[in-house]
Deep mutational scan, measured.
Amino acid sequence: MAAGGDHGSPDSYRSPLASRYASPEMCFVFSDRYKFRTWRQLWLWLAEAEQTLGLPITDEQIQEMKSNLENIDFKMAAEEEKRLRHDVMAHVHTFGHCCPKAAGIIHLGATSCYVGDNTDLIILRNALDLLLPKLARVISRLADFAKERASLPTLGFTHFQPAQLTTVGKRCCLWIQDLCMDLQNLKRVRDDLRFRGVKGTTGTQASFLQLFEGDDHKVEQLDKMVTEKAGFKRAFIITGQTYTRKVDIEVLSVLASLGASVHKICTDIRLLANLKEMEEPFEKQQIGSSAMPYKRNPMRSERCCSLARHLMTLVMDPLQTASVQWFERTLDDSANRRICLAEAFLTADTILNTLQNISEGLVVYPKVIERRIRQELPFMATENIIMAMVKAGGSRQDCHEKIRVLSQQAASVVKQEGGDNDLIERIQVDAYFSPIHSQLDHLLDPSSFTGRASQQVQRFLEEEVYPLLKPYESVMKVKAELCL
């Protein structure tokens, strides 16, 4: 049975990233139509530049190519590739079939990587351009969430054990800070992308030097003109047959890092959902379990974690691919890159769409948070109580021993009897502590235990987050809708 299948058929496997999760716009960027249309555009740009620099290419040939950029006979191309065992030459023939007058000058002087690699770089750039505003929107939604809850005390956790208090907004800023680093890295790697350009079979530009009869300047002009037509500021000066596969490492490393950030955020949300302090959106008709109707599973956060793990592992592909590119190139890269580049971007696209949807509907339960604080705060307040007693004339050592005994009794009630923490009640009825009984409410005010959390939130948002989001103001209103 021949390899390949009808990918629109229910009898043929289709990647869930495309069929179930990723956005239509990201799927289109990695589609065959987008790819092969870009090949034709690159052939047109090459012909236009070659004509401008004096090669015998007519206006009629150029116009014929322009008129057929979208006229792609995919069936013919597939048949040609089956016959020739070469995808680029299959599309040269297919393009030439609908451009008979231009057929002889299509791909003039070029090698397969002229269309293959340059198209990949265009796709990487455009895919990054799709991700950047999506990530900015996630940051914006979380920034709104953090600002609104900047002063809401909550129990902090280290080692997932109760620690000092923080605020809900401050905790959210930990998430935002990681995503801001990801946004900066995505922008950097996007701006650092260079075009492969017009380089020939081993990167020496020998074929173009021959076409222009040894004119170095025209060869350099050709490279520059096509690079500018493709919208790049610069091209690699040095290439082998391909652009260095280190570029793929750079791009997928940034995406993998984004995956790590999203995994951490969504894990926190899942843990908070278990504590009943916070939940992701839950639709009115949504079913959490087929057997347990009360369940409210954090399905979206779980999906993000599941896909983020996949995204983090994909960076190993370009690392290994770059390491086995012998001399000017081997074909070890080809099949692998067809999979890992598309999957990385479709996965990143999915987790950003999902995280935006989550961040637009996060639900906080202040009463649950308050109750958990009441359970733990008495123990945390013991040092403040000791200091207040010393100020009232008591002995630190005597007070410490009193607190120690009462704390152990209260802990026994919590752990052995399943009761509430009654340390404060014990202190309130103990005559030894009568000098500070009137101060206990103040000493137990949760806001006095959150330090500068709310001020940190305000400063972080104003100095770091809002300036970073400013270039994306025009796209901030787009909502994230999930079908599944």
Rank of each mutant, 00 (worst) to 15 (best):
H97T: 10
E25R: 13
V429P: 03
Q286G: 02
S19A: 09
L183E: 08
A348Q: 03
A2K: 15
I351L: 15
E473R: 14
R85V: 14
Y114R: 00
A453E: 03
I238R: 01
V198G: 10
Q397I: 08
F327C: 12
A431D: 12
P133H: 14
P10A: 15
A235P: 15
A381K: 06
V324E: 07
M316N: 11
L108K: 01
L319F: 06
R459E: 12
A344S: 10
L355P: 00
L121K: 08
C266Q: 11
L121Q: 12
A143G: 14
D420H: 01
G231C: 08
A103R: 15
A102W: 00
L46D: 01
M387W: 03
Q455D: 07
E148D: 13
D268T: 09
A127P: 00
A206V: 07
V368T: 10
T201D: 02
A143N: 09
Q325E: 03
G169M: 03
T321H: 00
I287W: 02
E220Y: 09
T242R: 00
I237C: 10
E213R: 15
I403R: 01
F379M: 13
G116I: 05
A143F: 08
S306N: 01
R171M: 00
N297F: 00
F282L: 12
L132T: 14
A206D: 02
S334Q: 05
F236M: 10
L142C: 11
K264Y: 04
A49M: 03
H97C: 12
R14P: 13
D32V: 13
L362N: 04
P293H: 04
V315R: 05
R426W: 08
T313W: 11
K229W: 04
A18L: 15
C305H: 06
T382K: 03
K479Y: 11
G451S: 03
P56Y: 12
E343L: 03
A411K: 10
E70W: 11
R149K: 13
M89T: 02
F74H: 10
N185Q: 12
D216L: 07
F449M: 04
Y34T: 03
D441N: 10
T321K: 01
I385A: 04
A453V: 07
D182L: 03
M89P: 00
V92K: 02
T94W: 07
V368K: 05
I386E: 04
N421T: 07
A3Q: 15
D420Q: 06
I287E: 02
D349P: 02
V475L: 15
E81P: 04
L443C: 07
G451L: 04
S67W: 10
I269P: 02
K233Q: 08
E64C: 12
I287H: 06
Q375Y: 06
D73E: 09
K101C: 11
